[in-house]
Design a binder for these strands. Structure first.
Lengths: 151, 151
DNA sequence: CCCTAATACTTTAAGCTTGAAATAAAATCC
DNA sequence: GGATTTTATTTCAAGCTTAAAGTATTAGGG
């Protein structure tokens, strides 16, 4: 396959990338389910809230996670039902709704996050600094392209 | 961030990879919806059937796409309802169910696939042979690891 | 052979996700 | 400053997805 044209190579690479991502997500989902009785969407939203060190607009949650508005609403609703997150009305703009982790949510997330990081480390243990550098350069190149898929 | 430790770098790289994949999937979903009135799961299943050049076991579909058995059943059911795919009972083993594209399904898919490939080519147009080579090496390294997430 | 275990698939309940419509509030424009 | 448009969020219907339980069939071990 030495002379494969670029479009074909790009397609094949994308399919392999997608497969790697799906497989990794499956492992992490299983890990979070078995060890922390939670799901990836919940974990992702809590991670976004934790990262922010304070209340976050609903729209920022969905923008960051690249999911729809309705999705953010739904997941936050479930987190609220378990007292892991709480909604606060926006101060200046009354259309805005802010979300933040509760005390309980912060504690629960930090325990999950430590384990999650260790699991990711294990899943990608075959990649050292050199490979990570190469991957960093490629991701950077994709992200900086005007119509970058990551917005 | 020059001295970031490996576990942290692996986690950050994974998060960026996930973001790239989600963004790309969002674009392709939108593209298929607008231009071909179909969805990614349907497209993925049809691609697996098309690739096989003949009937495929249900279990092979789910294994290939890294989704659950029940999911494969559900998506195939919808494809069947639109006469794009058809189920055939397995010959030797009566537990087995085989699936294949119909004539219509094959024609429909081939049109979709050509456009899909062009769109992927566009989304990754910033990657040339050199970057694809680097990415190929990294993916290969991950895949060949014993506990590779891609199974 | 018959019993048990393993395999292939489907069904079900619950949760996830999207796109579009609905609601509400703020910004813009005569 | 009242009408229109834009922005922020929620609601809704439909489809996607999983994990677990259920059904049917085959394989293996006395």
């Amino acid at each position: 396959m030495r002379d494969t044209d670029l479009p074909t190579r790009r397609l094949r690479t994308w399919l392999r990338l997608l497969r790697l991502t799906r497989g990794t997500e499956n492992r992490l989902r299983e890990y979070l389910r078995v060890n922390h009785d939670t799901t990836l969407p919940r974990f992702d939203v809590m991670a976004a809230l934790h990262r922010a060190h304070g209340p976050v607009k609903m729209s920022d949650v969905s923008r960051q996670l690249l999911v729809s508005n309705g999705n953010a609403t739904a997941v936050v609703e479930r987190l609220e039902k378990e007292a892991l997150a709480a909604r606060v009305p926006g101060e200046g703009d009354r259309r805005v709704v802010l979300v933040a982790l509760t005390e309980k949510g912060r504690a629960v997330f930090e325990a999950q996050a430590a384990d999650h990081k260790a699991e990711v480390d294990r899943l990608f243990s075959m990649l050292g600094h050199e490979e990570l550098n190469a991957l960093r350069d490629i991701l950077h190149r994709v992200e900086e392209a005007g119509d970058a898929p990551t917005g």
